[in-house]
C-alpha cells in the first residue's frame, strides 16, 4: 500500500488537556508519522504520513478520543502545505 500524506482537521470541543497527548499516543500505536500543526479548543490540525488504511484508522480513533473531548467532525485533505 503506498504512503499517503493527509491533513486531518479535527473540530469539536477539544480543550481538554488530555487530547493532544492522546492524539500523539494513538498515532504512535498506528506507527504513523505526524505533526500537530494547529491546536486550539475547537480545532486541531494533524499532518500524517503513512499507508492510507492507517490514516483511516487514525480518523476512526480520533472521532472518539478521550472521554472529556467531543469531536464533531474530521475533515481530510490530501494536499497539506507540509512537505
Amino acid at each position: 500500500m503506498p504512503t499517503a500524506r493527509e491533513r486531518l482537521t479535527i473540530r469539536g470541543n477539544l480543550g481538554a488537556d488530555s487530547f493532544l497527548p492522546w492524539v500523539a499516543r494513538h498515532a504512535a500505536r498506528l506507527g504513523l508519522d505526524g505533526e500537530i500543526r494547529h491546536a486550539d479548543a475547537e480545532r486541531v490540525d494533524i499532518d500524517v504520513r503513512g499507508p492510507a488504511d492507517l490514516i483511516d484508522a487514525m480518523e476512526m480513533g480520533c472521532l472518539l478520543g478521550p472521554i472529556d473531548v467531543w469531536v464533531d467532525a474530521i475533515e481530510r485533505s490530501s494536499d497539506p502545505e507540509w512537505r
Binding site: M1, R29, L30, G31, L32, G50, P51, D53, L54
Partner: peptide, 9 residues
C-alpha cells in the same frame, strides 16, 4: 488485505 501492518501494531 492490502495493508502491511506497521511494526507498532
Amino acid at each position: 488485505p492490502d495493508l502491511t501492518p506497521p511494526a507498532a501494531i
